[in-house]
Amino acid sequence: MDYHFHWRPVFQKLPELLQASLTTLEVAVLSMIIGIILGLLLALARMSPIKPLRWFATCWVELARNTPALFQLFFFGFGLGAFGIHFAPYFIVLFGLSFNNAGYLAENFRGGFQAVPDTQLRAARSLGMTIPQAYIRIIIPQVLRIVYHPMTNQMVWAVLMSSLGMMVGFRELSGETQFFASKTFRIFEYFAVTALIYYAIVKIILGAAKLASIRLFRY
């Protein structure tokens, strides 16, 4: 075998790769924020007495969890494109990831809501709190603690899933890597370095989540 490793071109592009990592992180974080909000609403919708609402939420959760994430991205890209609705690559990835995150998180949140005794709601209401007040101040904080670990995992998953961005022309970390790799043909070297960057990002997220949990959950 006479493949010679050339690392230098990769290292020269390291600033660009790190810049792209920030894009990756940004889209992952935003998709998590949107995913958490939508996931909470979906979980509440699934427990609601209104049938169409339940049905809509169930469809969303089923699709998000049981179809390839790549297809979900394609839906926001080529799928809606077929109907003349076009998004920039950034938004295709953001919407795709948010859709997927919301679906997975909704299911976790539902378990979380079921784990909080309904006597907590009664106690809050007996103090004169409205239903939204009781949910926001009493129920949801407890649910967020219960789903904290699944939520951290979903965050990691969002970072890794964002690499699908390169399939829709989005220059996040993988897209950028692909771009340089194909220009220089140092494919292995580029993807090896990028893999390490992903690894570092994930480890940082897990570490930060652990620190935050100590700060957030003192009970």
């Binding site: 907590q120 106690a123 809050a124 009493i138 407890q142 009970y219």
Partner: peptide, 11 residues
């Protein structure tokens, strides 16, 4: 109102 299960808010 005070309940049988005291229902402290744990967080």
């Amino acid at each position: 109102m005070v309940f049988q299960q005291w229902n402290s808010f744990p967080h």
